[in-house]
């Protein structure tokens, strides 16, 4: 169809249409006014609350009330062992099998000490400190096929896991981090870009102190001598020959531990890390130094 035809058609259409007259034009906006004047904010309507009943009166029933039914929250029997579950520390599990997997896939550098930051960086593990997650619980799934010599720091580990790692000549430490430090470890880049100085790691709460100070759980606050004794005990219990750390070529790496106040390997509290300028700023003020050393 040519453009001429379209024009023709439009013109014929226009000719057939009635002429614009007073009878077929719309009123000017605001010409007519509603003769009724409703009272109240929205002209006397129901303010979006609906018609009739508890909805309109906005006397909502108490939470969980089901208008006379046996309420859902009371239908189940009381289970006391869940008491305070919303306040307890949680350690989302990460198995030795998965750890072996990320090592085999070269997502984790085992020539350096491993901590929660490096495991999160591998992309195979994540946690949310605001859901009371306090770090990794390294579980013994795949303990039999675990074959890597590592220096690892987790937040919770069972005896079997400790034995599996020490059997391979590795070292394991269980360390507590307060939620704020865990946020930093989960996303160090975000923290460094916020331009704050690295804070100190806080001490564990009273109900966790026993775990983190005992040599049996390889706590980071335990006596190193006790730990070396317990290493031998565990080796005898599980029947493997204990590797002598002092003779190891990677002795330096295997013996690297964080200070109880330290969050990142190699970085001390009080330092400011600038990623743009690739520089570290250290405080010189004595008061600041004292604060960050305390």
């Amino acid at each position: 169809m040519g453009s001429r035809q379209i024009t023709e058609k439009a013109l014929t259409m226009l000719r057939s249409l009635p002429r614009v007259s007073l009878g077929n034009i719309r009123d000017n906006p605001g010409y007519k006014k509603n003769p009724k004047r409703g009272r109240g904010q929205h002209g006397g309507d129901k303010h979006g609350a609906g018609n009739k009943g508890s909805g309109q009166r906005q006397n909502y029933m108490r939470l969980g009330y089901e208008t006379g039914n046996n309420p859902f929250y009371l239908r189940m029997p009381h289970e006391h062992y869940y008491k305070g579950h919303h306040l307890r520390r949680q350690y989302p599990p990460f198995s030795l099998h998965e750890l072996q997997l990320i090592i085999d896939k070269d997502r984790l550098d085992i020539s350096k000490p491993i901590d929660i930051a490096s495991i999160v960086k591998s992309g195979m593990y994540n946690f949310t400190p605001d859901e009371k997650h306090f770090g990794i619980n390294l579980t013994d799934v795949g303990a039999d096929c675990f074959a890597a010599k590592i220096n690892i720091e987790v937040q919770w580990a069972s005896e079997q896991v400790i034995a599996a790692i020490e059997k391979m000549g590795g070292v394991i430490t269980t360390a507590y981090y307060d939620p704020h430090s865990l946020y930093l470890l989960r996303d160090p880049k975000k923290f460094f870009e916020s331009g704050q100085s690295i804070p100190r790691r806080m001490i564990p709460p009273p109900d966790a102190i026993e775990y983190y100070t005992s040599a049996k759980s390889r706590g980071y606050l335990a006596d190193p001598e006790e730990i070396s004794k317990d290493r031998l005990r565990l080796a005898q219990k599980y029947g493997y020959e204990l590797h002598v750390l002092e003779d190891d070529p990677n002795y330096e790496m295997l013996c690297e531990r964080k200070d109880p106040r330290q969050i990142f390997y190699g970085l001390e509290p009080g330092w400011v890390i600038n990623l743009k300028d690739q520089c570290i700023l250290k405080p010189k003020d004595s008061e600041l130094q004292r604060f960050f050393a305390s």
Partner: peptide, 22 residues
């Protein structure tokens, strides 16, 4: 905000880094 500017854009941001400490 100023700390953020320093953290993200470095010395070029023109922020004195001593505000980074408490």
């Amino acid at each position: 905000y100023n700390r953020k500017m320093y953290g993200k854009y470095g010395a070029a941001s023109g922020v004195n880094p001593n505000i980074c400490w408490p």
